[in-house]
Amino acid sequence: MKKLNLLILVLALSIGSAISAFAQPDAVDNETSVKAELQKMLEEPNFEVEGVYLANVVFTLNKDNEMVVLTVDSDNETVKAFVKQRLNYKKLKSQLDQNIKEYKLPVRIQA
């Protein structure tokens, strides 16, 4: 009887470990693909970059998986306009969690 209980316990732990191992890479891959998409959208600014510009972007997703930029917090007005132009109402290929109301994205633009 002890061997049967031990076997059931080992089997349950093995199944639990296997399930959790399969679930996590998808989340990491999704974050990586979203990051890559956003980096591609913000490549090659249409203004001359001198130094490093920082901005904090707050956006949400609509039902069509399009980003709606709510705010861009930056000291440089050109950077604000550039980020809004490149991200606002652009559709993401990757799926993000629709239950989250707002996403915060730090952006760094450098030469």
Rank of each mutant, 00 (worst) to 15 (best):
M1S: 13
K2H: 04
K2S: 07
N5G: 02
L6S: 10
L7T: 12
L9H: 09
V10M: 08
L11R: 06
L11E: 06
A12L: 15
S14W: 13
G16Y: 04
S17V: 14
A18F: 15
A18D: 03
I19L: 15
I19M: 10
A21R: 02
F22L: 12
D26S: 13
D26M: 05
A27D: 06
A27F: 07
A27H: 03
V28Q: 07
D29F: 03
E31R: 13
T32A: 10
S33D: 09
S33T: 07
K35D: 06
E37F: 10
L38A: 02
Q39N: 13
K40T: 09
K40R: 09
L42Y: 13
L42P: 06
E44Y: 14
V49K: 06
E50P: 00
G51E: 08
V52G: 01
V52F: 13
N56T: 12
V58S: 12
T60K: 12
L61Q: 02
L61P: 01
N62R: 02
D64Q: 15
V68Y: 01
V68E: 13
L70P: 01
T71W: 00
T71I: 03
V72D: 08
D73I: 14
D73Q: 12
S74T: 12
D75K: 10
D75C: 00
N76D: 14
V79Y: 08
V79K: 07
A81Q: 05
K84H: 11
Q85S: 15
Q85I: 02
Q85G: 05
R86M: 05
R86N: 03
L87K: 01
N88R: 00
N88I: 06
Y89E: 15
Y89K: 14
K91A: 15
L92H: 11
K93F: 14
K93S: 14
K93M: 10
S94I: 03
S94Y: 06
S94P: 07
Q95Y: 13
D97R: 08
D97F: 06
N99H: 11
I100T: 15
K101S: 03
Y103E: 09
Y103W: 15
K104P: 00
L105Y: 12
P106V: 02
R108C: 02
I109S: 04
Q110C: 06
A111I: 04
A111V: 06
